[in-house]
Simulated scan of single mutants.
Amino acid sequence: MRLFLSGVRTQFWLLRRQPDELLTLCTIPFTVVMMLSIVMHAARPDLVANAFLAPTLIGLWGFATGLATTVLVGERWTATLELGMAAPGAVHSVYLGRISAVMVLGVVPLGETWLLGRLLFGVTPEVHHPWVFWAAMAASVFAMIGTSLLLAASMLLSKNSNNYLNFLSFPVYLLSGVMVPVQYLPEFLRPLSHAIFLSWSADLMRDAMAVEAVTGAGWRLLAIVGLGAAALVGGRALLAAALRRARELGAVTYA
Rank of each mutant, 00 (worst) to 15 (best):
V180G: 01
T56C: 07
G89A: 13
V123N: 01
N163L: 08
G7M: 06
T253A: 12
A101M: 11
M40W: 02
T10N: 07
M1H: 13
T147C: 12
V214W: 12
I58W: 08
V214F: 08
E75Y: 08
D46P: 00
T24Q: 12
L221F: 04
E248T: 05
V8E: 04
S6L: 11
T215Y: 00
R206K: 15
P130C: 07
R9P: 00
L72A: 09
Q183I: 12
M34Y: 11
F63Y: 12
V94L: 12
M103C: 10
L105R: 11
N163E: 03
W61I: 04
P186G: 02
A195W: 10
T147Y: 15
A223T: 14
F4E: 11
R118E: 05
E126D: 04
S176C: 09
E112W: 08
L185M: 14
W114C: 03
L168D: 00
T215I: 02
A195T: 04
A87E: 02
E212Q: 10
L204R: 13
V71K: 08
S161V: 12
E187P: 02
F63E: 01
G66A: 06
G62F: 08
L189E: 00
I28Q: 03
A139M: 13
T147V: 03
T56E: 04
L105S: 06
I99F: 15
G146H: 09
L36G: 01
A251E: 15
L119S: 05
A87N: 07
A195M: 15
A195I: 02
A64V: 06
Y95V: 14
G228V: 08
Y173G: 01
G117R: 03
R2A: 13
V32K: 02
I58L: 09
F63C: 01
R244P: 00
S93K: 05
S161P: 01
L5W: 13
T78E: 07
L81A: 06
I38K: 00
P88E: 07
A136M: 10
V104Y: 02
T80F: 05
G235W: 09
S154V: 14
V233M: 09
G228P: 15
T253N: 07
L222M: 14
W131H: 15
P29C: 09
S154N: 03
M85G: 05
N50M: 00
L192P: 09
V211H: 06
S158F: 07
A229G: 04
R247H: 02
M179A: 11
P19C: 12
G62T: 02
P29E: 13
G106N: 07
C26G: 10
V8Y: 08
L189R: 01
M40A: 07
P19Y: 07
S93L: 14
T124C: 02
S140D: 08
A143K: 15
V108S: 07
N166S: 05
T215N: 06
L25W: 10
L150G: 01
H41T: 09
E82A: 05
T80A: 03
S201W: 06
D207S: 14
V33E: 00
L105C: 06
T56W: 14
V132M: 01
M103Y: 10
M137T: 15
M144T: 13
